[in-house]
Each structure stands twice: as structure tokens, then as C-alpha cells.
């Protein structure tokens, strides 16, 4: 499924970073609009928040937290590579970044359910 010349861990790290960034960028306007309901439509906001207490929505929120953490840790990895010229064990750091993100999202999820 992945083209042969892309079949290595750092390309997957790039893919995750790009996908998470696009998803977050698409999510943000929705997030802002919902928060904006607090201005005049607090009742509607309450309705949205109640709806968000259902399991599928909580799982989606866990997903978003995961995407945010993945994008953050992946981005930090890039900043280190570009500005500190540090390249030993880049692959291990990429893997650790994903693991940490998953842990963060899981912790969040466990608190929420």
C-alpha cells in the first residue's frame, strides 16, 4: 500500500505529522464555533456539552487529543533535528513520540469515561 521508496519509519512519522496537522486544522474552526456559542447561546452550548458526554464523542475527543500530542511531539522532533543538528537515534525518538502521545490520549480517555 505504501510505495516501496517510502517504506521506512521516518516517512511514517512524516505522514502522521501531516495527517494530524490537517485534521487539527479542519477541527479548529468547529471548535471555535462551539466555544462561540457561549456568547449568547449558553443553552445551546449546554446541549452540545451534554451531547459530548456520549461514548462515541468521547472516543473522538481522545482521538483529537492523540492527534494534538502526536503533532506536538513530532514537531518537537523536527525542531531538534533542524536547529540542534541532532540525528542519532532519530527513529527511536519518533517511536517514543508516538508512544507518549498515545499514553497522553489514553490517560485523558480513562479520566473521561
Amino acid at each position: 500500500m505504501i510505495k516501496p521508496h517510502r517504506n521506512h519509519p521516518l516517512w511514517l512519522a512524516f505522514l502522521l505529522h501531516r495527517l494530524s496537522g490537517v485534521c487539527l486544522a479542519l477541527y479548529l474552526p468547529v471548535h471555535f464555533l462551539v466555544l462561540g456559542l457561549a456568547i449568547d447561546e449558553t443553552a445551546r452550548l449546554g446541549g452540545v456539552l451534554r451531547w459530548s458526554e456520549t461514548l462515541p464523542v468521547e472516543m473522538a475527543v481522545m482521538g483529537l487529543v492523540f492527534l494534538l500530542a502526536v503533532h506536538l511531539f513530532g514537531g518537537l522532533r523536527l525542531l531538534v533535528l533542524e536547529f540542534l543538528d541532532w540525528h542519532d537515534r532519530q527513529k527511536s525518538v519518533a517511536a517514543a513520540a508516538v508512544a507518549l502521545s498515545f499514553a497522553a490520549a489514553a490517560a485523558f480517555f480513562l479520566q473521561v469515561i
Partner: peptide
Amino acid sequence: CHSHQGCATLCPNELNPTLSIAGLKR
């Protein structure tokens, strides 16, 4: 450059253009 490092993975002379490019960015 997005630092995929496909170049470094495949360079037959084991060079790492991504790191050179990072140097240029700096």
C-alpha cells in the same frame, strides 16, 4: 524539505542530505 530522510535511507554513499539541508535552514 520535510525531513523524510528517504534520501539518507537510499544514498549508496551513505550521505545524509537532510542534515545538510537542516544546516542550510539554520
